[in-house]
């Protein structure tokens, strides 16, 4: 019994070391990783619109409901590389076919060449974040997708199964009708003959 306790203590001790090591990334505690860290988990997309190169980053890459996140947006002129220094309005709406609701997340000033917008979503789903600004009298609108939590896979699978089911049932019903009418026709022919 005593030796069992010793083995158990050793196992727990080793597991404790492993757990402690797992919390370190390159010698730094993982809890220090964040949006401002130099190696944060993020989704980054670069695009071009009008006179600007735009880069946006989402932190964390795949946020979960009720988890704080942030979008960083950089916009620099294509011709001279100067950053845009006006105001950027961030909006959000549901990325679904029948949704028209739009909500303003915030209006942000430039901060160290970056526009930062925090967010917390309570519901899982696919959202579209819209960043809007004006330059030289021209409006600029940039949309980018953001998924909160796990996607809903039942949608496409459900639609596929429903279509297949509908097609197969329809073909079956039509074929039955065909068979019956053929039988009836044959019966009529036999009667006449």
């Amino acid at each position: 019994m005593k030796s069992l306790k010793i083995i158990l203590a050793m196992v727990l001790f080793l597991l404790g070391i492993a757990a402690a090591q797992a919390h370190h990334v390159l010698g730094r505690p993982a809890y220090s990783l964040g949006a401002d860290s130099n190696t944060p988990p993020s989704m980054q997309v670069e695009t071009q619109i009008g006179d600007f190169y735009v880069t946006y980053m989402a932190f964390p890459a795949f946020p979960k409901p009720n988890q704080q996140g942030r979008v960083n947006l950089y916009a620099s002129r294509i011709d001279n590389g100067l950053p845009f220094d006006g105001k950027v309005t961030f909006k959000v709406n549901d990325d679904s076919w029948f949704s028209g609701d739009e909500e303003i997340l915030g209006i942000q000033d430039i901060d160290d060449s970056v526009f930062r917008q925090g967010f917390i979503f309570q519901k899982e789903g696919d959202y579209i974040i819209t960043a809007e600004f004006e330059s030289g009298g021209e409006p600029y609108t940039i949309d980018f997708p953001l998924r909160i939590g796990e996607p809903t896979p039942v949608g496409p699978i459900g639609i596929t199964v429903a279509i297949l089911f509908f097609v197969l049932i329809t073909v079956n019903v039509l074929q039955r009708k065909r068979r019956f009418s053929l039988k009836a026709k044959r019966a009529r022919e036999e009667e006449h003959s």
């Binding site: 996607p151 596929t160 297949l164 097609v167 197969l168 073909v171």
Partner: peptide
């Protein structure tokens, strides 16, 4: 990956509809 899966499902639907008809 998500769009790849959708494309795969679309291939199943199209192949099935054509074969059924």
């Amino acid at each position: 990956p998500y769009a790849t899966a959708l494309l795969s499902l679309l291939m199943i639907i199209m192949a099935t509809v054509y074969m059924a008809v």
